[in-house]
Design a protein around this nucleic acid. Structure first.
Length: 619
DNA sequence: TTAAACA
């Protein structure tokens, strides 16, 4: 049964009230009962004796060389071949009171070695106590309450309202509590049941809306459920069960960090591989076993060619920032990885694509990777509350620097909790980034820069220095436009506007993160004419003040081609292109957007004949 | 044409 949007808002509002007001009260958590044991009389002996005992005996050999042990070919007792390191996932403890997702009860316990990812509080370098206290959950849920959500596809699993009602497993639930996640964000409420239900997913959701958890939770949970993961034992080749690809190294690092937290003490191993860093350490990590591999495409291809990684055991494939991953620069590589290597075909694996924006062409490409998928669109954070204030100023190329200086001077007054607020300045080129950084520094503004011509060390140092407030100005190319979660960026300046409106959306998304407010200023001049119309539309849809001169530019600008054309207005990053096909030309009026997109989306039943199972959260 | 992604 589907809950209505109003209901879910009411429900979650009441939950917040309870959990916020009385933090001492622990959430009631029922003892987990695995699916195959449910609805049985209490006397029924758990049907675990066979495998469990084998598991126990088998575990004694844990730590032995997994390479040299011959496979148990024709032996009388067919013992399950366990994965590397004898990873045992399953319900070994289900018979006991505590019940649940026991795992890795091996002779040696990795938990002792596993670094506690929750102890090194990476927020600490960013904020003082008062700040982080208040923001411990990291997400301002009030800002999420009225976000519209739309799903389409066949038999869409209904959303959930709490983590408790999802079968994620107790170990993962513990980590969710450690992360101080009180309740799922909209994208999590919808995406997690979809993925747990075994479905493929194309999801439009802004990063910072809890997207990483939305695909990590079901992956980790699913891997924990795999009782016996039989992986080939080929010396020095790693067989991950899940692959998460992202377009930049920093984003891969970030996802890896998150995934480590979520998988802490679950026995699920997460490894990251990206370029610009020595490969040897990554190889060692891989040899120690990997369940979830987070990678950038280039390094992954390298690893595949060296046969140090095989994709033949992949059950889950997630593409983060999928629209970037499938654009001109990346598509061939992604296609090679997904289609030319040894990865199981679509339908034999679960594929999840996430991005804040999903142009139609990209959706068409992406559908090659998907099987009977569900399309999920979560409205932009702040689409109604306007968490990001957008400004456009007409600035000639030659005036940009002094104009930026003015902004930065004003920003200087803006001190929160004794710290200078952070400003992220986007430029078009790598050279431009360097020269602007240099100019800022000699003019007394501590700045650093991140772009693809810098070494990985320099890039990571720049990011740390910015996050810590040591250099509160970061000049960046589009390498920093997507996905990076930098808390407390108060101001995004589009010193050079991008050519593509989607890039603009991603860039300004670096502020107003997790439901907080932010400011985005763009420098516009004749060179950006092609962006005038989509920009004006976007701003109007976001209830921003559109300067009259921009409107004039917009009406003057030729509006050719599908590039820079938005679908379904600004509340979502895209709409299901399968529907557009079925609706034919009628849909053209959506392209213009113009504020009535809400009603266009919200009317249920419009698509009944064409898209069975369509459910609107606005019902 | 930019940018990103392996040595």
């Amino acid at each position: 049964m589907r809950t209505s949007w109003a209901d879910s808002v009411a429900n979650s509002a009441s939950e917040t009230a309870v959990s916020d007001k009385n933090s001492l009260r622990r959430p009631t958590r029922s003892t987990y009962v695995p699916p195959h044991l449910r609805n049985r009389p209490a006397s029924d002996t758990p049907n675990l004796s066979g495998p469990a005992s084998e598991r126990t005996s088998f575990n004694g050999t844990a730590g032995g060389s997994q390479w040299s042990r011959p496979s148990m070919g024709g032996g009388g007792v067919t013992k399950p071949e366990l994965g590397r390191h004898n990873q045992v996932y399953g319900y070994a403890g289900a018979g006991r009171g505590g019940g649940g997702w026991n795992n890795r009860n091996g002779g040696w316990d990795r938990r002792e070695r596993e670094v506690n990812p929750f102890s090194d509080n990476d927020e600490a370098d960013v904020t003082d106590q008062a700040f982080s206290e208040q923001e411990s959950s990291g997400i301002n849920f009030d800002a999420y309450e009225d976000i519209p959500v739309e799903t389409s596809g066949e038999n869409v699993p209904p959303p959930v309202n709490t983590f408790a009602e999802i079968d994620l497993g107790e170990l993962l639930n513990q980590n969710i509590r450690r992360c101080k996640y009180v309740k799922p964000t909209p994208v999590q409420r919808h995406a997690i049941p979809i993925v747990l239900g075994g479905r493929d997913l194309m999801a439009c959701a802004q990063t910072g809306s809890g997207k990483t958890a939305a695909f990590c939770f079901p992956i980790i949970s699913g891997i924990m459920r795999e009782q016996y993961v039989q992986r080939p034992r080929v010396a020095r080749t790693a067989y991950p069960l899940a692959l998460i690809l992202s377009p930049t190294r920093e984003l891969s690092c970030q996802i890896h960090g998150e995934a480590k937290k979520f998988s802490y003490q679950t026995g699920v191993k997460v490894v990251v591989a990206y370029g610009g860093a020595p490969i040897n350490q990554q190889l060692r990590e891989l040899e120690r076993g990997v369940d979830i591999l987070v990678a950038t495409p280039g390094r992954l291809v390298d690893l595949l060619e060296r046969a140090r990684v095989s994709l033949q055991m992949i059950r889950y494939l997630a593409l983060d920032e999928a629209d970037r991953m499938l654009d001109m620069g990346f598509e061939p590589q992604i296609r090679e990885i997904v289609e030319q290597m040894d990865m199981p075909n679509r339908g034999m694996r679960q594929t999840m694509l996430f991005s804040a924006t999903f142009p139609r062409e990209i959706q068409r490409l992406a559908s090659d990777f998907l099987s009977n998928y569900i399309f999920l669109a979560v409205g932009r954070v702040g689409s109604s509350t306007d968490l990001i204030v957008q400004r456009v100023e007409f600035v000639q190329e030659s005036d940009k620097r002094s104009h930026l200086m003015d902004l930065l001077h004003a920003q200087r007054e803006n001190v929160v909790h004794g710290k200078q607020t952070l400003t992220l300045v986007f430029v078009e080129t790598k050279k431009g980034a360097d020269s602007l950084e240099h100019w800022l520094c000699i003019n007394g503004f501590p700045a650093t820069t991140i772009h693809g011509d810098r070494t990985q060390q320099e890039r990571e140092l720049a990011l740390r220095s910015f996050k810590s407030g040591k250099t509160p100005i970061l000049v960046a190319t589009d390498v920093a436009a997507r996905g990076l979660d930098i808390p407390h960026v108060a101001h995004v300046v589009n010193f050079d506007l991008p050519n593509d409106i989607d890039d603009y959306v991603h860039r300004i998304g670096r502020t107003g993160r997790a439901g907080k407010t932010g400011l985005a200023t763009a420098f516009f001049n004749e060179g950006n004419s092609s962006l005038a119309r989509p920009l004006a539309e976007l701003m109007q849809e976001a209830s921003q003040e559109v300067p009259a001169w921009l409107t004039r530019y917009a009406s003057r600008a030729t509006y050719g081609g599908s590039k820079n054309r938005r679908y379904g207005g600004g509340r979502f990053g895209g709409r299901d292109f399968r529907r557009e096909g079925s609706l034919g030309r009628n849909l053209d009026h959506y392209g213009g957007g113009g504020g009535n997109s809400g009603s266009a989306y919200g009317v249920p039943g419009n698509y009944g004949g064409n898209a069975p199972g369509v459910s609107s959260a606005w019902d």
